[in-house]
């Protein structure tokens, strides 16, 4: 968990939960089926373009809108390992951490990241290395309270340990 590697996929500002999981898919019972519609109205090629292990790099207010956790789940299903954004909506950030996906807040620009750049993230050092661009940047480290949840692979795993130990 402490070291994450992947390829950048750039998204814009104000990507909302209705964008990520369109309302019409919400009553689908199969999460994999739902994931096929991820961001369909915003980036029609997203599902085809995203490769396993990708790291989303987004703008301001990522995940604004509904509390629907499906908006984290679909990314998990699609193999997203971390999301870097200029800012996160509150519920979305909680859902990410609770599901064991690091959400990193960083004010970045296109000199720092482009699509498909190879990225390395160290949560412990609060450092992102762009191997493609040979650049390094620091971010405000995720507080320990939350990295403890990430280390367990999500809050339910952490809770299970507490309940059954």
């Amino acid at each position: 968990m402490e070291q994450i590697e992947g390829f950048a996929y750039i998204l814009g500002d104000d990507i909302n939960t209705d964008d990520i999981v369109p309302s019409h898919t919400l009553t689908m019972r199969d999460p994999k089926e739902m994931a096929k519609f991820t961001l369909e109205f915003v980036d029609a090629n997203f599902v085809n373009n995203i490769k396993k292990g990708n790291i989303i790099i987004a703008g301001e207010n990522f995940g604004t809108g509904s509390s629907r956790e499906e908006a984290v789940n679909v990314f998990k299903i699609l193999g997203i390992k971390a999301i870097i954004a200029k800012s996160f909506a509150r519920i979305y950030f909680r859902n990410l951490i609770n599901k064991g996906i690091p959400g990193i807040t960083l004010d970045w620009d296109d000199k720092m990241f482009s699509n498909e750049d190879q990225i390395e993230i160290s949560l412990q050092r609060g450092e992102i290395v762009n191997l493609t661009k040979k650049k390094k940047v620091n971010f405000v480290k995720i507080p320990e309270f939350l990295t403890n949840i990430l280390k367990e692979g999500g809050i339910l795993n952490q809770l299970k340990k507490k309940l059954y130990n």
């Binding site: 509390s67 629907r68 956790e69 909680r94 859902n95 609770n98 999500g154 809050i155 339910l156 809770l159």
Partner: peptide, 17 residues
């Protein structure tokens, strides 16, 4: 508002961070 995992934590313990 909270997501489904947080709801599960509350259902189980009555607590939330």
């Amino acid at each position: 508002g909270i997501g489904a995992t947080d709801v599960s934590v509350v259902f189980a313990t009555g607590n939330l961070w």
